[in-house]
C-alpha cells in the first residue's frame, strides 16, 4: 500500500492531468527523450459514472444522472502501473494521463514532469478560476439604503 503522502500527491497530479487537454499532453510527451515506452494493460474504454448529489445539497445521497468517463491502464518501462480516468470520451487522452501517471511514479523523472506538465496545468486552472470569479464579483449587487425625507 502506498504512503499517505504518495497518495495525496498522486491524486493531485491525476486531478491536474484530467484537466489538461490532449494536445498539451501530446506535446509534453514529445518533449521527453528518449521516447518513453509503455505497454497498454487495459485499453482505453469509455463508460458511464453515475453522478450522485445530496438532498438539499447536504442530506442523503441520490442519483442525479450519469456522465461519460474514459479510463485506461498502462505499465511503464520500470513496471509502474499508470491509471487514467477522465471526464468525456477522449480515449487517447485517458491513455496519455495513464502514461504520465506511470512516469510520475519514477522519482528520477517526477520533478521534471511536475515542472513541465503538472505545475502549468494547475496554474492554468487557477488563472481560469480567478477570471471566472472576478467576472462574477463584477455582478455582485451593492445594496444601498434610500433615506426617506422628513
Amino acid at each position: 500500500m502506498e504512503k499517505t503522502d504518495d497518495i495525496a500527491s498522486r491524486k493531485r497530479r491525476l486531478a491536474a492531468l484530467a484537466r489538461t487537454d490532449r494536445d498539451a499532453l501530446e506535446g509534453a510527451l514529445r518533449r521527453i527523450t528518449p521516447v518513453p515506452r509503455y505497454d497498454v494493460v487495459k485499453p482505453a474504454e469509455t463508460g458511464l459514472v453515475m453522478v450522485r448529489g445530496r438532498a438539499g445539497g447536504t442530506g442523503a445521497p441520490f442519483n442525479l444522472g450519469e456522465m461519460t468517463v474514459t479510463r485506461c491502464v498502462v505499465r511503464g518501462e520500470d513496471g509502474a502501473l499508470g491509471v487514467g480516468y477522465v471526464a468525456g470520451r477522449d480515449r487517447r487522452k485517458a491513455e496519455l494521463v495513464a502514461v504520465f501517471d506511470a512516469l510520475l511514479q519514477d522519482p528520477a523523472r517526477a520533478q521534471a514532469l511536475e515542472d513541465d506538465v503538472i505545475a502549468p496545468a494547475e496554474q492554468r486552472r487557477q488563472v481560469q478560476r480567478a477570471r471566472t470569479l472576478a467576472r462574477a464579483a463584477a455582478t455582485r449587487v451593492d445594496f444601498f439604503t434610500v433615506v426617506r425625507g422628513e
Binding site: 474504454e45 453515475m50 445530496r54
Partner: peptide
C-alpha cells in the same frame, strides 16, 4: 450502449 464504471462520491455543491 455503455458500461457503468461506478457511482461518484456525492457532489459537494457547497
Amino acid at each position: 450502449t455503455l458500461a457503468r464504471f461506478g457511482a461518484s462520491l456525492p457532489l459537494e455543491t457547497g
